[in-house]
């Protein structure tokens, strides 16, 4: 479970002063649920997710992930989170096996446990062919599979995806979307940020629309359609963000 209460993150810039990258954000994600954080570039999605993954400390407000506080139990939070983003890359000079094993060890797993889990993940993700090849020689698809295996090696209860399909071709993006659905099927708590409307429509149980660091609207797709009188997600988004921009 993820719970955020009035979560705020302020960056201080010499020229621009205080920047509210995340401003008073409150939401909850249940196990077996995918929460879609939908917003344009610079809306505050990445900052919010980085705070939840304890990469950044919140300025104000609180959040708990898998029952642990992000501010004072950061290591426990990270032990229960799998974080996959376009910005989380692989070590090019390591093989896929070495990369995944390394993260297994960092998560406190024993070598036999890592080997067993790796065998299982390799079969599920069809990785056996390139498991012992160096990551810098991988195609985008191979890289994504290795990253997925890296996030899943310790079988976390919470999965955080930050624009995981950014820059990927259709087939690789579809594989990612399928994998996110599988996570929900396994009862994991999933939060998924994107600016691609179709992904939100296909995947998310609850959608939060974020703009200028603020969570402007929240609800299921059906609820949002009803509330804003539109069927198309893009139209709903423009309506919400446009209203905010006008006010």
């Amino acid at each position: 479970m993820i719970e955020a209460h009035h979560l705020t993150k302020i960056f201080r810039d010499k020229k621009r002063g205080e920047i509210f990258a995340a401003n008073d954000i409150t939401f909850r994600v249940q196990p077996g649920q995918i929460y879609g954080l939908l917003g344009a570039n610079g809306a505050g999605k990445t900052t919010t997710l980085r705070v939840l993954a304890t990469l950044l400390a919140p300025t104000r407000g609180t959040a708990t992930v898998a029952g642990f506080d992000v501010a004072c139990e950061a290591e426990k939070v990270r032990a229960n989170v799998g974080f996959l983003a376009a910005s989380t890359a692989l070590y090019g000079r390591l093989t896929a096996r070495e990369m995944i094993t390394y993260f297994g060890r960092l998560n406190g797993m024993t070598d036999p446990a890592i080997r067993a889990r790796l065998k299982q993940l390799s079969a599920e993700l069809d990785m056996s062919e390139f498991l012992d090849r160096r990551c810098d020689k991988f195609s985008t698809g191979m890289k994504q599979k290795t990253s997925i295996a890296r996030t899943l090696i310790h079988d976390p209860a919470v999965m955080i995806f930050d624009e995981p399909t950014l820059g990927l071709d259709v087939m690789t993006a579809r594989a990612i979307v399928r994998f996110v659905r599988d996570c929900r099927g396994r009862g994991k708590t999933v939060i998924y940020s994107t600016h691609v409307m179709s992904e939100v429509e296909k995947l998310c149980d609850v959608i939060g629309i974020i703009h200028g660091g603020k969570l402007l609207a929240e609800g299921s797709l059906a609820e949002l359609r009803q509330r804003f009188g539109e069927t198309d997600m893009e139209e709903i988004f423009v309506k919400i963000v446009g209203e905010e921009g006008a006010s």
Binding site: L55, E75, K76, R78, F83, T88, A89, L106, G108
Partner: peptide, 14 residues
């Protein structure tokens, strides 16, 4: 630069 720092920081290591 290679984007692996963020990957490493996601681990539960202090």
């Amino acid at each position: 630069e290679r984007g692996t720092m963020e990957t490493l920081l996601c681990s539960p290591v202090a």
